[in-house]
Amino acid sequence: MLDSYEHVIEAAVFIAEQMTATAPQLRVLGTSREPLHVAGEHVYLLKTLESPPDAARLAVNEALRHPAVELFMERAIAARGDFALSDDSAPVAAQICERLDGIALAIELAASRVDAFGVHQLLNLLDNRFSTLAQGRRTAPERQKTLLATLDWSHQLLPDTERVVPRRLGIFPGVFSLGSAAAVAQDENLAYASDRCGREPGGKVDAVGERRSDAVRYRLLDTTRDYARRKLADPGELDMV
């Protein structure tokens, strides 16, 4: 099993090909957002955990049919043994899961804060999710102790071009087209960064392409968008974009 290998992908490709060539019955499982692009590879997309689409009038038993709420409930009980969802709090828990895009780590971090804030206040605090979800397990890897640390870890592994594109796409509040993405992402600095990364001029399209849907529309998860906007403000690009 090769876990989160995107920062050493060339070595991962070499290892996977050498092992499977030497032992044809061997199977290699890779967990990453970056495919190996080798012969015989099969890519499976793992979606985020499902949250109730309409949480306004949701009873407890209905909420718990959704994996995101089930995980929230399990982790909240672990943090506070007497925690229980009611028909009043179940819709709020479902909204928390939806606001966190069904991201398992974010849901776990949120559930661990139920003891301090309760579900209603916790939902309100998600307007500043990176400050609220800043207390993970002490024994967790550094990159999984907070939501911000997780995104920072991924962001720092990106080449220059792929850092520029997602932060500029953070200005879109919802879905957008590839043409719109290119319009806000492209400038002389980006072209220069593309050249430095050894990409062709079309490389900026590759940096966006992982957000593709069947309808050829794109969107960032709310959590990713919030992070992108934080990064967009850092270089002073916000007004220009």
Rank of each mutant, 00 (worst) to 15 (best):
P91V: 00
K145R: 13
T223L: 04
L29S: 07
Q144Y: 11
A104K: 09
A149M: 08
A193I: 03
A63Y: 06
E50P: 01
Q95P: 03
R199F: 10
L178G: 03
D239R: 13
Q95L: 04
I15C: 05
D101V: 01
V38Q: 12
I15V: 11
A39N: 10
L148G: 09
Q18S: 13
L169Q: 05
L105I: 15
A93Y: 01
A183V: 01
W153H: 13
T48Y: 03
L46C: 11
A193V: 03
E108N: 06
R129P: 07
A140L: 07
N124A: 15
T22P: 09
A11D: 11
V208K: 03
R75P: 01
A94W: 00
E237N: 13
V38M: 13
A12Y: 00
S180L: 12
A59K: 10
E142M: 06
N189L: 15
E34D: 15
F130W: 05
V114E: 00
P53G: 06
P201L: 09
D234I: 08
F14R: 08
V184H: 11
A193S: 14
E188P: 01
E74R: 10
L64G: 00
Q156M: 15
M1R: 15
R229K: 09
L2E: 00
Q18G: 09
M19Q: 11
A116R: 12
A215M: 07
L232H: 02
G174L: 08
E98I: 13
D54V: 01
P35Q: 07
D187M: 06
F130Q: 03
L157A: 12
R212P: 05
A193Y: 07
V184I: 04
T150M: 12
R163Y: 05
I103C: 01
P24K: 07
P235S: 14
L125D: 00
P67N: 05
A181F: 00
V165M: 06
K47P: 04
T48P: 04
P235A: 15
P141L: 05
A21I: 04
L190S: 07
M1N: 09
D234G: 10
G209A: 14
D239L: 14
S32N: 09
Y227D: 01
G236W: 11
Y5A: 03
E200V: 03
L125G: 08
L64M: 04
E210I: 11
H155C: 11
M1T: 14
A233E: 10
V13Q: 13
D234P: 05
A11H: 11
V184Y: 12
A140T: 04
R196Q: 12
A76G: 10
